[in-house]
Amino acid sequence: MARATDKKYDHLFQLLLCGDSSVGKTCLISRFADNEFRHTHINTIGIDFKLKLFTIRDKKIRMQIWDTAGQERYETLTAQYYRKAQGIILVYDITREETFRNVTKWLRNIEDHGVKGVKIILIGNKVDLESERKISTRHGQKLANQHNIKFFETSAWKDINVTEAFTELAEQILAKVESGGGRDRGSSSIRESAIKLHEQQPTPATKSHGGCCSGGSSN
C-alpha cells in the first residue's frame, strides 16, 4: 500500500523471453520497449536487458525484460534468469516448423527452472510473412490451449499484436499479485510489508497477502 509512495511505479515485473534462435525475440522487445524495428541487428550473446514503464488500469508497471540467446548451449547461462521471472514469453516463428516443435522443449525448461505458477504466453511471430507460413493459427492456439496459456500471433516488423501480448501478460501478473496468489513475488511483498510494519506503526495487513492467516486479513 504505502510502499509505492516514494517510487515512480506501483509494481515491478520481471519478464523473460525465450524461444529458438532467430524467431524474433529481440525484435519483439525492441518493438514493445522502443517502438522500433531494425532489419539488421546483432544476435544476442548471453543475455540482454530492456526496461519499459507501462500503465495498466492506472497502475504504473515497471517492466524489466530479459532477452535470452536462443542457441541451446546458452541455456546454461540463462537458466538462472528463469528463476525470478514472473512472466515468460515463449516465441516461435510461424514460418519455421521446428521452432514450433521446440515449444514443448522450452515449456519443459520453464518447468524445470522457473517458479511454479509463472505466467506464460505463447507467441507465433512473423505473421507479416503470411505466404511462408508453415504453422496455422489453429495449431498454435491448440498447443496453447493444451498448456492452458494465452496465445498471440504477432509481427514485430508490422507492429501487429505486440503490445497486446505484453499487456496480456502484465495483466495476468498484476491480477496474480493483487490477489496475493503471486507466491514468490507475493512473499517478497510480505517481507516488505513485514519490515514496514515493524518500522512504522502496526497497521492492518496489506492487500498483498490476502488469503493468509487471520481470516481474509483485508480489514
Binding site: 510480505i190 517481507r191 510489508s193 513485514a194 519490515i195 510494519l197 515493524h198 502496526p202 492492518p204 495487513a205 497477502h209 493468509c212 492467516c213 487471520s214 481470516g215 481474509g216 486479513s217 483485508s218 480489514n219
Partner: peptide
C-alpha cells in the same frame, strides 16, 4: 481474533 493479522520475519 477476527480480521487483523500482522507479519514479521
Amino acid at each position: 481474533s477476527t480480521s487483523r493479522g500482522m507479519l514479521t520475519s
